[in-house]
Amino acid sequence: MKTLRADLMVIWLVATTALCVGLLINQFRDTPLPLVYKDKAERLQDSVQRIASKESASAPAPMVHLPEKLSLEEFASYVENKRGLILDARPEIFHRLGHVPGALSLPRDDFEKGYAAVKAKLETDRSQPIVIYCSDASCEDSGLVKKSLAALGFSNLTLYEGGWNGWTNAKKPEETAQ
């Protein structure tokens, strides 16, 4: 019994030390984790608000008729004809490993940095169609990025829900980052 008590005391000390170490390491990160958790959508909304506060309001883009979602054939025609802008909402590392030809990286998990990198291309023509994809139909990243871009004043947005998995399963051409 005495030994068990001593073991529990050691565990308590180790747990306290671990929490202190974890909190300390967090303070030295580029972007420390806040103490209260925010889900992916809330974090993205915060990023959009920060971007919007830095930018002046743009005139709404003229609407182009776009379906809510594209089929594989429709998406392939956008890619082959280099029509509009294709955005990859997956984490940047996956984009580097392989992406749809011509697609630019705008990762959901690092939206502010990604947006700054593609902003010039987005602003070239605000009426151009923008197609967003992520991994597959079960991933929510493309939908969240679409919402964020809509909040930033882009209106001609659509999704390719099949995503990277649908594209590669169909044996379509791939491109890797140089």
Partner: peptide, 18 residues
């Protein structure tokens, strides 16, 4: 939500120490 990040920060060092 008040506990998720605390666990995410404290648990990994605890696993390493153990």
């Amino acid at each position: 939500p008040q506990l998720i990040n605390i666990v995410a920060l404290g648990l990994p060092p605890f696993e390493i120490l153990a």
